Simulated scan of single mutants.
Amino acid sequence: MTAAMQRTRVKFCGLTREQDVDAAVALGADAIGFVLWAGSKRAVDVDQLARLAARVPAFIARVGLFVDAAPEEVSRALPWLDLLQFHGDESAAECERYDRAYIKALRMRDGLDVHAAARCYDSARGLLLDAYRPGVPGGTGDTFDWSRIPPGLGKAVILAGGLSDDNVSQAIRQVRPHAVDVSGGIESAAAIKDAGRMRAFVNAVALGDRVANQTSV
Rank of each mutant, 00 (worst) to 15 (best):
A3P: 07
A4F: 10
M5V: 15
M5A: 07
T8Q: 04
T8L: 08
T8Y: 02
T8M: 07
K11C: 12
K11N: 10
F12T: 13
G14P: 01
L15F: 03
T16E: 10
T16K: 15
Q19S: 14
D20R: 05
D22M: 13
A23E: 11
A26S: 15
A29F: 08
A29H: 07
I32A: 08
I32W: 05
G33N: 03
W37A: 03
W37V: 00
A38P: 12
A38I: 09
R42M: 08
V46I: 14
R55E: 07
P57R: 13
F59E: 02
F59R: 12
A61H: 08
A61Y: 00
R62I: 07
R62Q: 08
F66I: 10
A69H: 13
E73G: 07
R76I: 00
R76V: 11
L78T: 09
P79C: 08
W80C: 08
L83T: 05
Q85T: 15
D89P: 07
D89Q: 15
E90P: 02
E90L: 06
E90C: 14
A92L: 12
A93K: 11
E94T: 08
C95F: 02
C95L: 04
C95A: 06
R97N: 09
Y98N: 06
D99A: 15
R100D: 09
R100H: 09
Y102V: 15
K104T: 13
K104G: 14
A105G: 06
R109M: 13
R109N: 05
R109D: 12
G111I: 07
L112G: 03
H115K: 11
H115T: 11
H115A: 15
A116Q: 14
A117I: 03
A117C: 12
A117K: 12
A118V: 06
R119N: 12
Y121G: 06
D122H: 13
S123D: 14
S123R: 15
S123T: 14
A124H: 02
A124L: 04
R125K: 13
L127W: 04
L128N: 01
D130F: 05
R133N: 08
R133M: 11
V136P: 05
G138F: 02
G139T: 05
D142H: 15
D142R: 14
W146C: 04
S147W: 01
R148V: 05
P150K: 02
P150Y: 03
L153N: 06
G154F: 12
G154K: 07
K155Y: 05
K155C: 09
K155F: 07
A160W: 06
S164P: 00
D166P: 05
S169M: 12
I172D: 04
I172K: 00
Q174W: 05
V175W: 13
H178I: 07
A179F: 03
D181V: 04
G185E: 09
I186L: 14
I186V: 15
E187Y: 01
E187A: 00
E187V: 00
A189K: 02
A190N: 00
A191F: 03
A191W: 04
K193R: 03
D194W: 04
D194Q: 01
D194R: 02
A195L: 03
R197S: 09
R197N: 08
A200K: 06
N203Y: 08
A204E: 13
A206Y: 14
A206P: 12
L207M: 11
A212Y: 05
N213I: 11
N213L: 10
T215Q: 15
T215N: 15
